[in-house]
Computed example of a mutant assay.
Amino acid sequence: MSTLPATEHVRLSLNENPFGPSPRVLDAISSSLMDISRYAGEDVARLRAALSAEHEIAPEQIVLGEVLNTFGLYLAAQDGPGREFLYSAPGYTALVDAVRPAGGKAIAIPLDDRLGNDLGAFLRRTTAETRAVYLVNPHNPTGIVEDSEHFLDVVAELSQRTLVLVDEAYLDFLPDARERSTARLLREGARVVVFRTFAKLHGLAGLGLGYALAPPDLSKAMREIGVGEFFTLNRLGLVAANASLNDRAFLDTMRGSIRAERDAWHALFERLGVRYTDSQANFVFFDAGRPHQVVASRLASRGIDVGRAHPPLDNWVRISIGIARHNEFARQAVAEVLHDR
């Protein structure tokens, strides 16, 4: 049995970027420390301008902050209780958790045979009572990314019936993320809100900064209640985001590093003969052939934390990509746990 050095703990549970941010980010933060007594000002405008150029979206349509929950709560409260919010299950539940306190009705749409979003089921289930559809692409916890053109076609059709919320937290791990992004539909006037974050590829999870690209009426409504305004934002997060966006070479390196480690995990699953998804994110998802809690407990005893369970996929385990040393240790441990039947 392999053992973990006493000084190390392997956290592969929260889909963080273990390689950390760009050196330019650290330099920018260091240079800005003396200014943290001041509210953000020019940094807000600078980031909005950069994101506007990146996505070809008007600056006033950009809502800064990790605002998925806020949008959910607002939408659920706006029309009163009982309106339906459709989402893929199992999946990331931030929107579901946000709409329920305001009376929103969460409707789970099971994943398809690939363990991706069942887009056909969303089309069939969307009705006049549907307040919004929530899609995560690539999906969490499976990492499945949808065929680009088909996904855009379905989202465009759905947006003619209701508001579509698309969470693209992990899309930046794909080299063609810009072409895949539903921001294209928003530019064409579709009723789509696109959520992005600096917590994943950019390695800034600890600074809590993301953003939404939204139709003009929704972005205006958010501003009117103070969401994304300068006094709500972490100035160091803004500085870090600006610096990271300007280091394209670093981001390309990060994509390659994550892909190499993810490929090594997939090669292990092939050797072990276990089913796994074609994850394109910074985590892997596989069928351990036994209850999640058993595998997670045995790995925890070796100092390795993995993602939570995702019922009804009770035998499946999600493991975040860590640094190479931790991944190697974890792969050895997983092989031993799965061999010990």
Rank of each mutant, 00 (worst) to 15 (best):
L73H: 15
V239R: 00
L238E: 03
A53L: 13
Q293D: 15
L64H: 05
R308E: 05
E146Y: 05
A132T: 02
R196E: 08
A156S: 15
G228K: 05
E129K: 14
A6N: 08
A190K: 14
I107P: 02
N246C: 11
T3V: 12
G189F: 07
R24H: 14
A241H: 07
L26M: 13
E56F: 04
G103H: 01
I319T: 03
E188R: 15
E188Y: 13
G91M: 08
L33C: 10
V337P: 00
A214G: 08
D172F: 07
P5V: 06
D217N: 08
V227H: 07
R262A: 04
S279E: 08
V99K: 01
K105E: 12
L152S: 09
V136D: 06
G91N: 04
L174S: 09
K105P: 00
R191N: 11
F269Q: 02
T253V: 09
F231L: 11
V136Y: 03
L171A: 12
A49E: 12
F285Y: 15
A333H: 03
I323D: 03
A183E: 04
V67N: 11
N137T: 11
E336P: 01
F85M: 04
G256D: 13
S301R: 13
K220A: 15
A288D: 08
V133P: 05
A89V: 13
